[in-house]
Design a protein around this nucleic acid. Structure first.
Length: 422
RNA sequence: GGUGAGGUGGAUGAGUGGCUGAAAUCAACGGUUUGCUAAACCGUCAUACGGGCUUAAACCCGUAUCGCGGGUUCGAAUCCCGCCCUCACCGCCA
């Protein structure tokens, strides 16, 4: 959520930034400021009346103590009048505050000045590419056929047990998942990230904290009997570790990593996009999250991009890094880099990581602040990225490394998977 | 799931209707003393919002907050109701 001070200081500037994201309701900014004016004025009236009531109550206590019953009764009448005046003020204040908050959570984060203009994925800016696209042998096939050929992923079995988008990994397929998870986690912890194993379901407050609620509840699985949500990414539980905290400067930066399954309803997806491992309702991902001082967050974002890039390189996959344009960015992000790897048999780029700086958007909702060197309380900034998401990595590993005799896995995985082929 | 006991600042913990935004201790921070460390002593030490105040800081004043939400009362950390959570025992169980 944006900070009110930001809107008040430069409403026109905020609208310009929102336009980069093609936000449809710029008038909200003015509505919010006007509601905030009302809030201030009502708060003043409320506090003032309440102060009179409190003062009178004290006097009543003192008068009672001295046995001056009549004077005390007189004061009680005064309080009664004041309370009658307070009730409508309070009611209006409550409703203004609620309205203000409802509007405020509808504003997306402001895109950073580095965000390219544009509306669609075609407008994303290619920052750099790496690796080389392989020459596949004749008769090469996409990963879903390889999965069947080597009997390592069973999509039909998943359909039977649960439904589409819930594959069953089997034999070397299951082992490879485990190897990838462990390789990614080790890589992250070696770089100074602390490993966590968080809950896979979160409450409403956590969903709100990272920005999935109130807007995007349709994208999460909701366990209604207990009002819990299955996490769409480890970002949600891990970032919320620091909800409602006031940190010291020395605590920062906080660097966390976690492996979790991720659950997404993916309502509205269809066609070849969802073939095989391309888009699933349940998938595995290793995530990195950082909480940092605000003046460091863009530097840290670049570090995280470099960190993920080296990991992708170590797998020998052809990749490219995109800077997302305003129209393709998520609601909460200020700047996002997407990593895509080239799936040689499908001949398409698949997104395997998204690394974002949320600036104070999440931490404002979560109330995650810190005391800076001058003892002032400020919002921290939060960032996260996938390091990495498994299914599409797996798809590319299978497709790009297929040979007539089997699939040859990258050397980096040998310590985890062994040196055998699939 | 049942029964009982609880939830107070960074931590421990006192507080059963007004003198309590909250004792005391510990931790932390600043200082004095000190060859260094330790100890001792002095001081500071919740957050948010609003106002003074036009921007920022400092300061002053006010309001709210003792798990969360309601209620009783002139006045609630304290009494009542609902919910959440923790602990103990029982039940169930990987």
């Amino acid at each position: 959520m944006l900070q009110l001070a930001q809107l008040r200081n430069d409403p026109e500037g905020v609208k310009e930034r929102l336009a980069v994201k093609h936000f449809a309701e710029p008038a909200l900014v003015d509505e919010i400021i006007s509601l905030d004016d009302q809030r201030k004025s009502l708060t003043f009236q409320f506090d003032d009346t309440k102060a009179k009531i409190n003062a009178a109550s004290k006097e009543i206590g003192a008068l009672m103590g001295k046995g001056q019953k009549e004077e005390a009764e007189g004061k009680k009448k005064d309080v009664e009048t004041l309370k009658a005046a307070l009730a409508p003020i309070q009611q209006e204040l409550d409703s203004v505050e609620k309205g203000l908050n409802d509007l405020l959570v509808r504003l997306p984060n402001l895109p950073s000045s580095k965000v390219p203009k544009g509306r669609t994925p075609e407008d994303n800016e290619i920052v750099r590419t790496g690796g080389t696209k392989p020459q596949l042998p004749a008769g090469s096939v996409p990963h879903w056929e390889l999965a069947k050929k080597y009997d390592i992923i069973d999509f039909e079995l998943g359909n039977k047990i649960t439904g589409s988008g819930f594959p069953v990994y089997k034999g070397k397929g299951a082992k490879l998942q485990r190897a990838l998870i462990q390789y990614f986690l080790d890589y992250n912890t070696a770089a100074g990230y602390t490993e966590f194993m968080p809950p896979l379901m979160v409450n409403e407050a956590s969903g709100y904290g990272t920005g999935q609620l109130p807007d995007k509840e349709g994208q999460m699985y909701h366990v209604t009997v207990d009002n819990l949500y299955l996490i769409p990414t480890a970002e949600v539980p891990v970032t919320n570790i620091y909800r409602d905290t006031l940190l010291k400067e020395a605590d920062l930066p906080i660097r966390m990593t976690a492996y979790t399954p991720c659950f997404r309803r993916e309502a509205g997806s269809y066609g070849k996009d969802v073939r095989g491992l391309n888009r699933l309702h349940q998938f595995d991902k290793v995530e990195i999250v950082q909480i940092v001082p605000p003046d460091k967050s863009y530097e840290v974002l670049e570090d995280m991009v470099e960190h993920v890039e080296k990991l992708v390189q170590s797998l020998g996959l052809p990749y490219r890094i995109l800077r997302l344009c305003g129209g393709d960015m998520s609601f909460a992000s200020a700047l996002t880099y997407d990593f895509e790897v080239f799936s040689a048999a499908q001949e398409k780029w698949l997104e395997v990581s998204s690394v974002s700086n949320f600036e104070g958007f999440q931490t404002n909702r979560m109330r995650c602040r810190y005391k800076d060197g001058n003892g002032r309380t400020q919002l921290t900034h939060s960032l996260n990225g996938s390091s990495l998401a498994l299914p599409r990595i797996l798809a590319c590993l299978l497709e790009n490394n297929q040979t007539e005799n089997g699939i040859i896995l990258p050397v980096a995985l040998q310590g985890y998977f062994g040196s055998e082929m699939i």
